[in-house]
Simulated assay, not measured.
Amino acid sequence: MRLRTVFICIILLFASGLSSCKKDLLHWKKDQQIDSHTTHTIDRILFLNDTLGFAVGGLRFLYADILTTHDGGYTWSLETYPEAGKEIYDITASPDGTLYTCSYDAKMLSSGDTGKTWQFRQLSSWQPYKSVAFPTSTHGLMVGGVSFDFGCTGHVGSDGNVTSYDSVGYELNQIRMLDSQVGFVCGYGVIKKTTDGGNSWRFLNINTDNFTAMDCRNPACIWTCGYAGSIFKSTDGGESWTRMRNGNDLTIPRYHLYDILFTDDMNGYAVGEDGLVTYTDDGGQHWMEFDRFTKDHLRCIARAPNGDLIVGGENGAFYRLQR
């Protein structure tokens, strides 16, 4: 009898959670599919100004893709770079405007003419880099890893020369530098901070997820999401963290999150598997799910120059969203 009562309570908890999910389901004012001209994965989106933007991706062992828009993200053209030949996971711009990408097996493309032409460089370390930052015009950092228990960090010059390299026992997923000295990396059970341009890194007090992405709104306010569905916020530059969504809570939907974006202090989005877009309008206190316009995993989210959202993901999934 006692076991039966416990079982009924568990069922009621799940039913309550499902009912809450349906009640909180949001609807887009407009969700428009963008022609990506590819069935490959789109991993990262970057806008340089009101008209020019890039999206990068490909297939891990086969293709390196760069999509370019000249009209603020409404239409895109695709170029594939066989000399790189590995999936491009990230793209960044240095202070002088030079663009850099990073690919699996330490392949790098760079452009000094806003993407009109790209130069290929094979880095000497041959590591599975997944994220890149160029906080100065001459010095960049790359991080990556595989299989949860291997990670790597490389310092690279604008000429593609790797000046130093280090390996760690946990996968690293993303690096974001706020200036030439201060930055963060996130990965499997870790977020670390540097205050000396990446020469040394300090572990921060957060470790309960495989952290996949960060949104650094300013030096104090940092958001991060994890593959297990957790979302954390720091308001003191990473010294302390508040869990805004518990991915291990059995009473709420199970999410796998890949990217996070806040458009202001209160409004934020996270994207993930099976077309998930979840949203908060109260600074992360509550998260609501949008109705799903695709079943493809969404890997990245960015804000278009006019304020729309653009998301990209697997199988060439590419959408423009209006809330």
Rank of each mutant, 00 (worst) to 15 (best):
K86E: 13
G97V: 00
E83W: 02
S103T: 13
F54Y: 15
N49V: 00
T39R: 01
L67R: 01
H40A: 08
G73A: 07
R121C: 14
A93I: 00
S77A: 04
T98I: 10
T98Q: 09
Y74T: 06
L67A: 06
K107P: 07
I88R: 09
M108F: 14
A93M: 07
D65I: 02
S111D: 10
R44F: 05
G53P: 05
L46K: 15
G58I: 03
R44I: 03
E87A: 12
D43H: 06
T98A: 09
E79N: 13
T114L: 08
L46N: 07
A93D: 01
S110G: 04
D105R: 13
T114M: 11
R60L: 09
T41C: 07
T117M: 00
Y104N: 14
G58E: 11
S111F: 00
S77E: 14
D90Y: 09
V56M: 06
T39Q: 10
D65G: 02
A55T: 09
K86S: 11
F61H: 10
D50Y: 00
G53F: 04
K107D: 15
L48V: 10
S77G: 06
I66A: 07
M108S: 02
F54C: 07
P95I: 11
H70W: 02
A106I: 08
I66G: 04
T101F: 09
K107Q: 15
D65Y: 06
G57E: 07
S77T: 15
A64S: 14
I91C: 07
A84N: 09
G53D: 12
T41G: 01
K107I: 08
W76I: 03
G115C: 08
G58P: 02
F120T: 13
T114I: 02
K86W: 05
P95N: 11
E83K: 09
S94Y: 06
F120P: 12
A55C: 08
T114Q: 15
F47S: 11
G58V: 08
D50C: 05
D96E: 07
L48F: 03
D50G: 15
Q119S: 14
A64P: 10
G57Y: 13
G73M: 09
Q119R: 00
Y100S: 07
T69F: 04
G112M: 03
D96Y: 01
D96I: 01
Y74Q: 13
W76N: 05
S103H: 05
L52N: 13
Q122I: 12
E79C: 05
Y100V: 11
L78A: 00
T80E: 14
W76C: 03
A84S: 12
I42S: 01
P95L: 09
T98D: 07
V56E: 14
A93L: 07
G112N: 08
A84C: 15
L78Y: 10
G85Y: 01
F120H: 13
A84V: 12
L62F: 06
D105P: 02
D113G: 02
T39A: 11
N49Q: 03
K86H: 15
F54I: 13
G112W: 00
T41P: 08
S94N: 02
H40Q: 09
P82M: 12
Y81K: 11
S110P: 05
Q122K: 15
R121E: 08
T92K: 00
N49W: 00
T68G: 14
D50M: 06
Y63K: 12
T68V: 13
C102N: 13
D90L: 07
G58W: 11
R60W: 02
Q119V: 04
C102K: 15
W76P: 11
Y89H: 12
Y63T: 12
